[in-house]
Nucleic acid binder design. Structure first.
Length: 314
DNA sequence: AAGTGAGGCAACCGCCGCAGT
DNA sequence: AACTGCGGCGGTTGCCTCACT
C-alpha cells in the first residue's frame, strides 16, 4: 500500500488559513527561517500539516511575491515556456521568481488555456495563407535577431546596469512580448481587473507582512544555514527594483537564480547558477529569443493583427 | 432581492526524487 | 541494497465571489 500521510490526519486542521495562523507562521519563519517544515507545526502549535505550512509560506506569505495582474510580458513567457517545458510549473516559475508555481498554474488553467483555445479557433478560421505578403507589417528576422541580441547583451551586463536599464528596456521587452503574444490585451485593462480583486482579499496579510518585512533580516541571512527553498526570492527582484506600475524588469532580472531547468534538462543549484552567470550559457529564455527569430523565417508568427495564429505548438 | 451558474483561487492529495540510515 | 522520512511538484478539488437572470 502507499505510504501513510505525512501528517496524522487526526486533529489536523484543513481549509483556509486564518490571519492568526498566518501571524504565527510568519513569526516562526522570521525567527528560524524557512525550512525544516516538519518541525514547524510542532514548534508553533499550529494544527497544520507541515506541507500545508510550507505551501502557505511559499504560495502566499513569502515576501516578494507578486499576485495577480499578470502582464502580457509574463503571459508571453509563460505560454512559451509551457510550450517548451510542458506543465513543469516549478521550472516555469523559476523564470518568474516573483510568481509562484501555483499562481502560474492557476493562471494557465483559468486564463491562458482559454485564450489559446480562442485564438486557435480564430486562427483556424482566419489563417493567413503562407503566400501572404506580411513583410510590410512583420519585423524581419534580422530585426528580431538584432533586437534579441540587444536583450541578451543586456542580460550579460552587470546587475547595476540592469537596474538602470530596466525602465527603458522593460518597455521594449514588454512591447516585444506583447506583440508576439496572441492575447496581448491593453495593460491597463489587465491591471485594473485583477489587482483590485486581490487587494481586497490581501489587506490583512499585507499589513501583517509589512511589519514582517521591515523587521526581518535579509532573506539570505535568515535562510543561510538552512536548506535552500527553491522558491526563495532573489533580492534583486524585490519590489524595490520593480518599475512603477508593477511591470516586470528586463529579462536579466527574470533569469533564474535558483534551481532551474536548463536546456539540457538538468537542474542547477543556485550557487552553480551564480557561477554560470559569469559565463552564462544560453538559457531557455535566451534560446527562445534566438529561436523566435528563426520562427519568423518560417512565418509562424502573425504580428499584423494579433489574432490569426498562435505561435505555440500544442 | 433572491437564486443560479460560472469563474477564479487557495489549498489538499498523492506521487516522486533525494538524502540519510 | 533496502528502507524511511522529508521536501517538492503537478493534478485536482472545493469554496468563495461575482455577474447575470
Amino acid at each position: 500500500m502507499g505510504r501513510p500521510p505525512c501528517c496524522d490526519k487526526v486533529g489536523i486542521k484543513k481549509g483556509p488559513w486564518t490571519p492568526e495562523e498566518d501571524i504565527i507562521l510568519v513569526s516562526y519563519i522570521q525567527e528560524h527561517g524557512p525550512g525544516y517544515w516538519r518541525s514547524v507545526p510542532i514548534n508553533t502549535g499550529l494544527m497544520r500539516c507541515s506541507k500545508s505550512c510550507r505551501l502557505r509560506w511559499t504560495n502566499y506569505l513569502r515576501p516578494g511575491i507578486r499576485r495577480g495582474n499578470f502582464t502580457p510580458h509574463e503571459e508571453g513567457i509563460i505560454v512559451h515556456l509551457q510550450s517548451l517545458l510542458g506543465n513543469r510549473w516549478a521550472a516555469i516559475a523559476s523564470y518568474l521568481p516573483q510568481r509562484t508555481d501555483n499562481d502560474i498554474k492557476n493562471y494557465w488553467n483559468t486564463h491562458l488555456k482559454k485564450k489559446l483555445k480562442k485564438h486557435q479557433a480564430i486562427g483556424a478560421i482566419f489563417a493567413v495563407p503562407p503566400s501572404s505578403d506580411l513583410s510590410t507589417t512583420m519585423p524581419t528576422a534580422a530585426d528580431h535577431v538584432n533586437h534579441h541580441h540587444h536583450l541578451i547583451t543586456t542580460t550579460a551586463d552587470s546587475k547595476d546596469s540592469n537596474v538602470r536599464a530596466a525602465s527603458s528596456n522593460q518597455a521594449e521587452v514588454t512591447q516585444l512580448i506583447a506583440r508576439r503574444s496572441p492575447f496581448a490585451a491593453p495593460a491597463s485593462l489587465d491591471a485594473d481587473s485583477s489587482s483590485s480583486s486581490y487587494a481586497s482579499s490581501m489587506d490583512n496579510i499585507s499589513k501583517l507582512l509589512n511589519g514582517f518585512m521591515k523587521t526581518s533580516p535579509p532573506q539570505n541571512d535568515a535562510a543561510a544555514d538552512l536548506k535552500p527553498s527553491t522558491t526563495e526570492v532573489n533580492p534583486l527582484l524585490s519590489f524595490d527594483h520593480m518599475p512603477a506600475g508593477g511591470a516586470l524588469p528586463v529579462f536579466a532580472d527574470v533569469l533564474p537564480t535558483h534551481p532551474v531547468l536548463m536546456e539540457h534538462g538538468s537542474y542547477h543549484e543556485p550557487k552553480q547558477q551564480q557561477q554560470q552567470q559569469a559565463h552564462a550559457p544560453l538559457s531557455l529564455i535566451e534560446k527562445w529569443l534566438l529561436d523566435e527569430a528563426a520562427e519568423q523565417v518560417v512565418g509562424l508568427m502573425d504580428l499584423s493583427n494579433d489574432c490569426c495564429s498562435v505561435p505555440m505548438m500544442f
